[in-house]
Design a protein around this nucleic acid. Structure first.
Lengths: 194, 194
DNA sequence: AATATAATACCGACCGGTTGGTATGTAGGA
DNA sequence: TCCTACATACCAACCGGTCGGTATTATATT
């Protein structure tokens, strides 16, 4: 594996474990098995390094979500898959969600980060809304506000993952599945077949 | 105002603005208008200081939520108030939510913090479930799993607040109100009056 | 093919500045 | 006279980042 990749991998790991501030450049280098010279050869600053990790994460996410929705069947099935998607994306490595938390926290005081996150989630929400609109046209959904519903589903998914951090006893797989079913049952037309 | 209180207030403010690591003890002291001697006179370490702030925050939250639910009318109205409660608790000062984020992030690598947060949310969820069970007994709700529903509502509320950080254009007040209505409509018995 | 030149990849010692924490001192009330 | 409640001065450790240097590889010239 080449040096740059090794540094990035070490950075992702350490940032998600200890956060941005508590992770020193020296530690990243040590973990990656390279010198500080190598780090600053590839990245102009620690801040810039962090942004590169964010970019990688977001484009990775985009790809994954789009591939999920490529499978075109009944919209309602796509929605049913929602939480599975989220579970998959974040739990694939829970690390990744911690990293998300770290991005978010840094975003509070860093407009560049905030914009990147905002743009991404906006696109995601629009994507979702389109899906719901399609469902309405297909005749499977009642006439609900698609923005409200897509926000509801995204919020629910994020919240579920968040709660898993400090509640490790509950069966979150079951809860998330049944939760989505509840949401869907409320927007499904009675006469539409599942 | 006494010295200890002034230090804590400065700490809350700075931790939520810049995060734990980026806030130095010296800065806290400067903001509070006291010396470092005073800080270490009242708190044994920065870490301990942070935990004390967390404790205050959690007990504050408990009080607030319980007072909300003291107002005993139809359960369904209590649920309708849910998002308003969350909005109130966190948006009263959005600062407080950033602080929550900071607690959460530190909790990832600190079991003491994680346990405190976990215990609190568990109690909160139980409280919610009880409310829902009461609603079922009152005959206003269908026979839904109260754990699933309370998790759903909490997740939704947290997720909504989280999304507000990076999406400042949407009308989150409207979205959260309509979202809760959607949830409630799905669990309400047809024949029950609002 | 051999050589010269230049660009890239990387090392590790070092710098000024900041950090959490401590040691020491003192003013004032009991 | 002792204790509490602070203030001041200070320290070793660590921080992000720089810099002079070298080893390796790619390109141009003969």
């Amino acid at each position: 594996m080449d040096t740059k990749e090794r540094i990035i991998l070490a950075g992702e790991e350490l940032f998600s474990q200890r956060g941005y501030d508590a992770t020193s450049v020296s530690l990243i280098c040590e973990r990656a098995g390279v010198s500080k010279g190598a780090f600053f050869h590839y990245f102009s600053s620690k801040e810039e390094f962090f942004l590169e990790i964010l970019d990688r994460w977001l484009s990775d996410l985009s790809q994954k979500i789009e591939s999920y929705f490529k499978e075109q069947d009944k919209v309602i099935n796509g929605l049913l898959r929602t939480t599975i998607i989220f579970e998959d994306i974040f739990k694939e490595s829970k690390e990744k969600f911690y990293l998300f938390l770290e991005f978010l926290r840094k975003g509070i005081s860093d407009e560049r980060i905030l914009k990147k996150l905002g743009d991404y989630f906006k696109r995601y929400k629009e994507y979702f809304s389109l899906l719901i609109e399609r469902g309405k046209r297909e005749g499977s959904f009642k006439d609900i506000d698609s923005e409200v519903l897509s926000s509801l589903i995204i919020s629910y998914s994020i919240g579920i993952i968040l709660q898993q951090i400090f509640d490790k006893d509950s069966d979150w797989g079951r809860i998330s599945r049944e939760g989505v079913n509840l949401i869907i049952s409320s927007i499904k037309k009675e006469d539409s077949k599942l």
